[in-house]
Design a protein around this nucleic acid. Structure first.
Lengths: 225, 225
DNA sequence: GTCTATAGGGAGATAGAC
DNA sequence: GTCTATCTCCCTATAGAC
């Protein structure tokens, strides 16, 4: 899968990775070509050999961010057997979405920070790609519903917005080295499909195994949301 | 509740509202004092009579964004009767969170766009307020769990991150004039508590009332996520 | 309170040497 | 391919008139 790259392509990739990190930290307007150049270990003027403008760079970063997700989810769905249930497909899509956004975390976070500030034409193109991804999810949910796996009162559009919101937010708090992506994906799927009060069988990582009781809880150290 | 404001306070509020809209559209670095001044109908130099710097302004905007949410959720929880169940409290908190972020939408979106780019000292202070709000939610969930309303396998920390992620994302797609906040809140609570496959009784707004069938679905017009 | 004018510093992008 | 040097423009913040 890893291709041998020409020397020029290596530099180009180094600049792109550096750009993702700087856009991630400073947003679109706050990012300077000089800062990207420093991060990539060359001088500002040299970037223009690889990319013709700052807009060209942000555009490439944004595309990688969404493409990683759509490609990974497509792949995961195609890898499922014919006999997969709606639940199987939802679990697979959640896992694929999470691993993709975390795998290219710099690009994902750069997108989150910069997308709203980017020139209209660039944003519109990226937004179209995201809309297409949204309809993939709408189809997944509609399919599970058609199979009779959902309660009839379920609102699929709101469910999709709810699921994708929660998934996209994950990048804000997930830190490699803590919980595994699989564990997070399993628990998310469990909440979405069975709910917190339901009695789903696939839940993992019970936090409190002791029986319900008026336990004294110290104020927990919480990550900002 | 609406106080009469001195002339100076009126101008100050006009500048602050203008700043929220401009920060929302251009992020922290992309916002210029000139743009805020234009939006507030005065000249750039005059802003400095009300706020001593750009950092002073963004700081005020960020504080309003989180305070609106914590205050509204606190108020909603306190308004509940003694007999309220864990489910009641979760539903109330979801509704209060949603109405607050939408009510001060410009400030909410400005926070989303700018928080990551703001000088460290300002971000740290705002992040502490957000952490405190996170522990309020952790308590709400722990309480419902202690009452025996959740399945024992539920992971409360992940559930909290999941719920708050989905709620915070709502500002990206919610448009006043469409669905009501109450409807969205009800459906979100229904997914979180009962799941999509559960048979909760509180679900509203069924999208497809016809029985499951292999209906032909046209590719839906989807909002970007 | 709001204005005009401006000081002082950086920004994106280009040209041409190496 | 990468460098240095530089053009031109726009930024935050201040000073002082009204």
């Amino acid at each position: 899968m890893t291709k041998k790259l020409a020397k020029s392509a290596i530099s180009q990739k180094r600049v792109l990775d550096a750009a993702a990190r700087i856009f991630r930290d400073y947003g679109y307007a706050g990012t300077t070509m000089r800062a990207i150049a420093d991060e990539a270990d060359l001088k500002a003027g040299s970037i223009y050999y690889h990319y013709k403008s700052k807009d060209d760079l942000i555009s490439a970063v944004l595309d990688i961010g969404i493409r990683a997700v759509t490609d990974n989810v497509d792949k995961a769905l195609k890898a499922l057997p014919e006999t997969a249930t709606g639940r199987d497909r939802i679990e697979a899509a959640i896992r694929a979405h999470l691993s993709a956004i975390i795998e290219v975390g710099d690009y994902t976070l750069a997108t989150r920070r910069a997308l709203g500030q980017v020139p209209e034409a660039i944003r519109a193109r990226n937004t179209r790609m995201r809309d297409t991804y949204g309809s993939v999810w709408q189809e997944i949910l509609a399919d599970a519903h058609d199979r009779g796996e959902f309660r009839t009162t379920a609102n699929l559009t709101l469910a999709r917005l709810f699921i994708l919101g929660a998934l996209n937010w994950t990048i804000e708090w997930f830190k490699p080295g803590g919980r595994s992506i699989d564990d997070v994906a399993r628990e998310f799927a469990s909440v979405v499909l069975d709910g917190l009060s339901g009695n789903g069988g696939s839940a993992a990582m019970a936090e409190e195994l002791s029986p319900p009781a008026k336990a004294k809880r110290s104020s927990p150290r919480i990550r900002a949301v």
